[in-house]
């Protein structure tokens, strides 16, 4: 069963700058990307989003849940 990993966007404001979950994950499950791009302008830190992508690789170690400073990550087994 593929684990469900939910990230509360309201709690995770500037993921690219925080990057704690991205760097601690032993299975490199997460990905971060801007939600928009503009000509001649870098995307603002609050216009980034982190998502759990490679969920089939998650081993439920919960390191991301523990490291998240705002408690934005929820990991659970199963689809419910």
């Amino acid at each position: 069963m593929i684990p469900q990993i939910e990230i509360d966007k309201n709690k995770c404001a500037t993921p690219y700058e925080c990057k704690k979950c991205l760097q601690i994950c032993p299975q490199a499950v997460f990905a971060v990307a801007p939600t928009k791009v503009e000509r001649f302008k870098e995307t603002a830190p609050e216009d980034y989003e982190v998502q759990a992508v490679f969920k089939d690789k998650c081993v439920l170690c919960m390191d991301c849940v523990k490291v998240c400073p705002t408690g934005a990550i929820k990991v659970k087994v199963g689809s419910s």
Partner: peptide
């Protein structure tokens, strides 16, 4: 460009 940056999503 956005598609490339968001690739894995």
């Amino acid at each position: 460009i956005l598609t490339e940056l968001q690739g894995p999503f």
